Simulated assay, not measured.
Amino acid sequence: MVISTILGVLAANAFRRRFLGDRVAFGLILLGMLTPGVLVGLGIALLANGAGIPRTWWGTGLAAHVVYTLPFSFLVMTVVFRRFDPVLEDAAASLGVSPARTFRRVTFPLISPGIVSSMLFAFTLSYDEFARTLFSAGADATLPLAIYGTFTTEIHPNLFAFGVITTLFSLSLLAVYGALMAITVMRTKRHAIQEEIA
């Protein structure tokens, strides 16, 4: 979630301007979303086995999930940056503010709702992913793999508890997202009123 969102923000920011090979780079980023999960997971597993790299959830499994969730984070942030007014950054630059500080003080607060959306999107997709994890995580078992392994042998009451906990966790994330969006809207309205008064 975090890695995909950071890479998605950086990639979307880079695509705000045209550069040589931008169409090819755009297609390569989206390739992870368009390729079937079985092929990606199997390809990473075969590549890791051929290179002698052990398959683990924090290594090959993480790479498979980033390849899958990065395009979604990238598309979300691309839409956010398309609606972003670059005049605000130009104004900060004309006042002598460094690019890093401009991003931290001007750009980041304005795109933060999109970043939260991107993180929730990446988390949901990664949490639910099965095929890529099955091939690339090796002997490590993630929660979906553990549930599937339990379900194939017997239907245990713990599965229903997992379902309830997962649902409550998802609803909690949505509630946090809703609260953050409400705060953002209130701040925007307050700034608009202050500008009208000034």
Rank of each mutant, 00 (worst) to 15 (best):
M1E: 11
V2D: 12
I3L: 11
S4Q: 03
T5P: 03
I6T: 15
L7V: 08
L7C: 14
V9N: 01
L10P: 05
L10V: 15
A11E: 07
A14G: 04
F15V: 07
R17E: 10
R18W: 14
D22K: 09
D22Q: 14
R23K: 15
R23Y: 04
V24F: 14
A25W: 01
G27L: 06
G27Q: 09
L28E: 05
I29T: 03
L30Q: 13
L31P: 08
L31F: 15
L34M: 13
P36I: 13
P36R: 11
V40G: 01
G41I: 05
I44R: 13
I44H: 03
A45L: 13
A45T: 04
N49Q: 15
G50N: 14
G50M: 12
A51Q: 05
A51N: 01
G52R: 04
P54L: 07
T56C: 01
W57T: 12
W57I: 12
W58T: 12
L62V: 00
A63C: 11
A64Y: 03
Y68N: 13
L70I: 08
P71S: 04
P71G: 05
F72P: 02
S73P: 06
S73K: 00
T78E: 09
V80L: 08
F81T: 00
R82K: 11
R82W: 12
R83T: 03
R83Q: 15
R83M: 11
D85W: 10
P86E: 13
V87L: 11
V87P: 00
V87C: 02
E89R: 03
D90Q: 12
A93P: 00
S94K: 01
L95K: 05
G96L: 06
G96Y: 05
V97T: 11
V97W: 01
V97I: 13
V97N: 05
S98W: 13
A100T: 14
F103K: 02
F103Y: 14
R104I: 05
T107G: 07
T107S: 09
P109A: 06
P109N: 06
I111L: 09
P113S: 09
G114A: 02
V116C: 08
S117E: 12
S118Q: 04
S118V: 03
S118N: 07
M119Q: 05
L120H: 02
L120T: 03
F121C: 15
A122N: 06
T124Q: 06
L125H: 09
L125E: 04
Y127H: 08
E129H: 08
E129T: 10
F130K: 02
A131I: 09
R132L: 10
A137T: 13
A139Y: 02
A139F: 08
T142C: 01
T142D: 06
T142M: 08
P144N: 07
I147T: 03
G149P: 01
F151R: 12
F151P: 00
T152Q: 14
E154P: 00
F160Q: 08
I165D: 04
I165Q: 04
T167P: 01
L168F: 11
L168H: 07
S170R: 00
S170D: 01
S172R: 05
L174Y: 12
A175C: 07
Y177F: 14
Y177A: 14
Y177G: 14
Y177P: 10
M181E: 07
M181D: 08
A182V: 09
I183E: 14
V185Q: 10
R187G: 02
T188V: 06
K189H: 09
R190W: 07
R190G: 02
H191A: 13
A192T: 12
I193Y: 07
I197R: 11
I197A: 14
